[in-house]
Design a protein around this nucleic acid. Structure first.
Length: 268
DNA sequence: CTATTTGTTTATCC
DNA sequence: AGGATAAACAAATA
């Protein structure tokens, strides 16, 4: 489920434990989410450290603990972050539970496409991979020219597929990519190379618009996006295009392995 | 039993 | 080298 705004919503759930010290850690050692950092290293490395700060970057998250301990987290397809009472007993898909003083931080992920890493840095600086992430879509460094150059690098690739590329559009996921194409009135299958410069500017602007709205609506309390958006209509069979005066039936199909929804009338 | 899933990584070919 | 493509990963839900 989680894209840009959902990720930030989950990140903030864990903020309830800020400034508290880790007492113990529960793990499911065999879980695939520990493929980069073994579960035992989490159990060993986190206790007695203080939870100092949380950050999100696109779909990536970083939780900083005292003494230069950095917990990197990605929610994959089905990951969720919640909190629970400090005496919480982990359930089947709660692969990582960090017990603090007054509550516990819970990472559940039944499909296990998510990932968690723990790195200890001597200089207390964030790991290199984190510092080298591309500009975030809502930052000033995410410029019009950057978007233009990125899109032009892949002239054969469908626009929707490009929007899903985390190197260029960190945080954009399936529903956001479809929403951006729909709002732009362009078919998601359109090869990037066929778009003119003015349209590349529009992609930049719309990416930021959809991202900003999502952060305000979903990122704060997970309330609903407007019904005037594609988002609330895209999964229902026989869904109708919500654009004023359109009324066309929405189409759904596979584009490069991802379910894609679009309006055949508005998006030509 | 089969098909489907809001994501990334890896292998392979070009 | 780097782009294009498909498959793999896992488990719940319909």
């Amino acid at each position: 489920m989680p894209e840009l705004a959902e990720v930030d919503y989950y990140r903030k759930q864990w903020n309830a434990g800020l400034d508290e010290v880790v007492s113990r850690v529960f793990v499911h050692p065999a879980a695939r989410i520990f493929r980069d950092t073994p579960a035992a290293a989490m159990e060993r490395g986190l206790p007695d450290r203080r939870f100092l700060k949380s950050r999100a970057h696109g779909k990536q998250m970083m939780f900083e603990f005292s003494g230069g301990a950095w917990l990197g987290l990605h929610l994959g397809m089905s990951g969720e972050l919640t909190t629970a009472p400090a005496d919480h007993v982990p359930t089947k898909h709660e692969h990582l539970v960090i017990v603090l003083e007054s509550l516990a931080l819970v990472f559940s992920d039944y499909r296990m496409f998510g990932k968690v890493t723990l790195e200890i840095t001597d200089d207390e600086e964030a790991p290199l991979w984190w510092r080298n992430l591309p500009p975030q879509v809502l930052e000033r460094s995410f410029t019009k020219s950057r978007v233009g150059e990125f899109v032009k690098r892949f002239p054969k690739t469908p626009l929707k597929t490009l929007l899903l590329d985390q190197r260029g559009f960190p945080g954009i996921g399936n529903w956001m990519a479809d929403e951006i194409c729909w709002q732009l009135k362009v078919a998601p299958q359109t090869p990037a190379g066929s778009l003119n410069d003015a349209f590349l500017d529009a992609i930049w602007k719309m990416t930021r618009f959809v991202s900003r709205e999502a952060m305000e609506v979903i990122g704060t309390d997970w309330s609903d996006l407007p019904d005037s958006w594609l988002m609330n209509h895209r999964w229902r069979d026989g869904g109708i295009c919500p654009r004023r005066g359109c009324k066309s039936e929405l189409l759904r199909g596979d584009l490069r392995g991802r379910t894609t929804c679009w309006c055949p009338k508005c998006q030509e």
